[in-house]
């Protein structure tokens, strides 16, 4: 095989694994959108906030340390101990669930029956609030996140492809783990929504709010539940992205790419989120690979959005979404 084909294959393979990362964020969007019809712009920032909280717990940082220092003139920074990941992750989950409860209490409850666009703008506000809160709580500097997932070049893939094709593909082990974790998460979500009582209630709410209410399902509980699950998904996404490139603000910008992923996959489909993520990941890597000599690099910044734009013109509901039917 010629070198170009091999390089393109490597680029595509890497795109596939980056795409899984996009899918992880997109999953959270889909969950909330299905259950409450809210397009949660804050999902990316939630991932950032979860990762920040996790790092903060791991390092035993004092929450709001910069603020406390500024007000009282002290110089507290951390409690002086490190929390093991096994303890820090459940603690972060508790924080995310608490946050979901607060969001329902303080924001969503008051915006029931508003137009989707108003709710969308409210989540933009939420994104900014969480962004500021995360920085004030844990400090704004770039942090390293390590929960024990192996990183670096995958030797197995390198050896295997070298023996097979005579050229070793470079693949990050972390991305392979992301693949595994995404698989586990999707399976868990499917099992949860198909076989448990709460999962069925969740699907009922997604289907029809009023009908669900009339058979005695508590909408507010379901919303808290959805936002909690979305928070946990955000935590997973935050861990993966954070381990890859450090916990920093750009995390929430990368997460914006989940939006075109959703347009491609459809807003209401969990498999769609996965496939969309993979398509975008492969697409942008291949586009960059082939077009770099022609129009220059860094096309990854916009390729996903332009692809989504083209898609919107021809198939607005995405690949797997339900057809958008408007009733008067």
């Amino acid at each position: 095989m010629s070198d170009t084909v091999l390089f393109a294959m490597e680029a595509a393979l890497n795109g596939l694994t980056v795409g899984i990362m996009y899918s992880l964020v997109a999953l959270g969007f889909v969950l909330i959108f299905k259950a409450s019809g809210i397009f949660n712009f804050a999902q990316g920032v939630m991932a950032l906030f979860a990762a920040l909280t996790l790092v903060g717990f791991q390092n035993g940082q004092v929450p709001f340390a910069p603020l406390i220092n500024a007000i009282f003139g002290t110089s507290v920074h951390d409690f002086g101990f490190n929390m093991p990941s096994l303890l820090a992750i459940p603690a972060t989950v508790v924080v995310m669930v608490g946050m979901a409860w607060l969001i329902e209490r303080l924001v969503l409850k008051h915006l029931v029956n508003q137009e989707p666009i108003i709710l969308f703008m409210a989540t933009i506000g939420l994104a900014f609030f969480l962004e500021g809160l995360g920085d004030i709580m844990w400090g704004a500097e770039v942090k390293r996140l390590d929960v024990g997932i192996p990183q670096g070049m995958s030797g197995a893939v390198d050896d295997f492809t070298y023996n097979w094709l005579g050229y070793g593909f470079y693949l990050d082990t972390l991305n392979l783990w992301a693949l595994v974790i995404a698989g586990i998460m999707v399976t868990a979500l499917v099992i949860f929504s198909q076989y448990t009582k709460q999962g069925r209630a969740l699907r009922a709410v997604a289907d029809d709010h009023q009908a669900a209410l009339s058979v005695g399902i508590s909408l507010r509980f379901i919303w808290v539940l959805t936002w909690s699950i979305a928070g946990i998904v955000a935590l997973v996404a935050g861990i993966m992205w954070g381990s890859k490139s450090g916990v920093q603000f750009s995390l929430s910008l990368i997460a914006l790419k989940a939006l075109p992923v959703l347009i491609l996959g459809g807003f209401t489909s969990i498999p769609g989120a996965i496939v969309g993520g993979l398509l975008i990941g492969v697409g942008e890597k291949l586009f960059d690979f082939f077009m770099q000599p022609v129009i220059g690099g860094a096309t990854e910044n916009w390729f996903a959005y332009m692809l989504a734009l083209v898609f919107l013109l021809f198939r607005p509901q995405g690949l797997f979404g339900e057809k958008i039917i408007e009733r008067v």
Partner: peptide
């Protein structure tokens, strides 16, 4: 703090 205030104000 300003970012946070703006976000809260929007909501």
């Amino acid at each position: 703090l300003e970012v946070m205030i703006i976000g809260a104000l929007i909501i």
